[in-house]
């Protein structure tokens, strides 16, 4: 970060989860336009609990669990000098004075940035919490330069998102049953499909839902034919009908990983693996599937519904 002089981490604990984030990208480096490095920046941490990241922060705002949306919506109003209800603000765990101070600092920043973590995007309100950050940041640009960036989970989540977008037009929650891509998170997203039991098979690549998803989803995975491609034995591979061991991406398989800011980095293998790469396995499966007769009838040309 060569420019940011005002940094907010919201709902994340980068000190533990993304340890390189502070030192490499955001906080400590002497940026091209922030020559004093850490001294030239203000860092605000917003979270529901004190984490090791608090030590790195200049200001820590402890918000009550599940109140992020309320806080951000209040900030949006304050940025536009609109009135808010003081007593209801206090229910968020933060005072009106604290939020007014934050708005003042945001407007006075030369270049502000908000990193938002899964503590925001995966808690009550979910996508609306992320939408709230985006809206706030867009509106702050009427006063100064402000940007935001999600802090994604582990693995190449961003890469999957990016590739889905250029191949299907949508980032996730895509269904291809009708022969063309459709998008509806909540209807087609993996966890919702599994919880409702809407799918009758699963192919899992580069993820361990058996360790993270709610129990009904895991039960469904165990019920249906589940195929897992993974270098390691995982919770999911244990409940799967088939586990194909593959070469570990980045260690013994080449590829591309997309950083959280969607910048692609090449992965260069350092070890040889006796196992095939995910790509090789998927290509082989695809060859076999392709040899089967087309699953859409030849008469199926028109698109009846979007």
């Amino acid at each position: 970060m060569n420019r940011a002089d005002f940094i907010i981490y919201w709902g994340g604990n980068p000190a533990d989860c993304h340890p390189r984030h502070f030192t490499k990208y955001t906080l400590t480096p002497k940026g091209k336009h922030v020559p004093m490095g850490r001294k030239g920046r203000t860092m605000v941490l917003v979270d529901v609990r004190e984490t090791p990241s608090v030590r790195a922060a200049d200001i820590f705002l402890q918000v009550r669990p599940g109140k992020d949306f309320e806080v951000i919506t209040t900030l949006r109003a304050l940025v536009k000098n609109q009135p808010v209800d003081q007593a209801r603000v206090a229910e968020t765990g933060l005072t009106l004075a604290q939020l007014q101070d934050l708005v003042g600092r945001m407007k006075n920043a030369r270049f502000g940035v908000i990193f938002f973590g899964m503590g925001l995007s995966m808690t009550r309100g979910k996508h609306m919490n992320s939408a709230a950050v985006l809206a706030l940041v867009a509106e702050l640009n009427a006063f100064t330069k402000f940007v935001c960036m999600p802090m994604r989970g582990h693995g190449n989540v961003t890469g999957a998102d990016v590739v889905m977008r250029w191949t299907t037009g949508f980032p996730f929650g895509v269904n291809l049953c009708r022969g063309y891509p459709r998008f509806n998170p909540g209807e087609f997203s993996t966890v919702d499909l599994l919880v409702r039991g809407d799918n009758d098979a699963a192919l899992i690549l580069g993820a361990d839902p058996g360790a993270t998803m709610p129990q009904p989803a895991i039960d469904h995975l165990a019920r249906i034919p589940t195929i897992v491609l993974d270098p390691k034995v995982t919770r999911t591979s244990r409940l799967a009908r088939v586990h194909i061991t593959t070469a570990a991406m980045g260690i013994s398989a080449p590829g591309t990983v997309y950083r959280m800011d969607e910048i692609p980095l090449p992965l260069r293998p350092i070890l040889q693996s006796p196992y095939p790469t995910d790509e090789v396995v998927i290509r082989r499966i695809h060859e076999q599937v392709k040899a089967k007769p087309a699953w859409l009838p030849a008469s199926f040309k028109k698109v009846p519904c979007a």
């Binding site: 309320e70 919506t73 209040t74 949006r76 109003a77 609109q82 009135p83 808010v84 209800d85 003081q86 209801r88 603000v89 229910e91 968020t92």
Partner: peptide, 8 residues
């Protein structure tokens, strides 16, 4: 419950 951004 109401958001802080609603006024009576």
């Amino acid at each position: 419950p109401l958001l802080p951004t609603f006024a009576y």
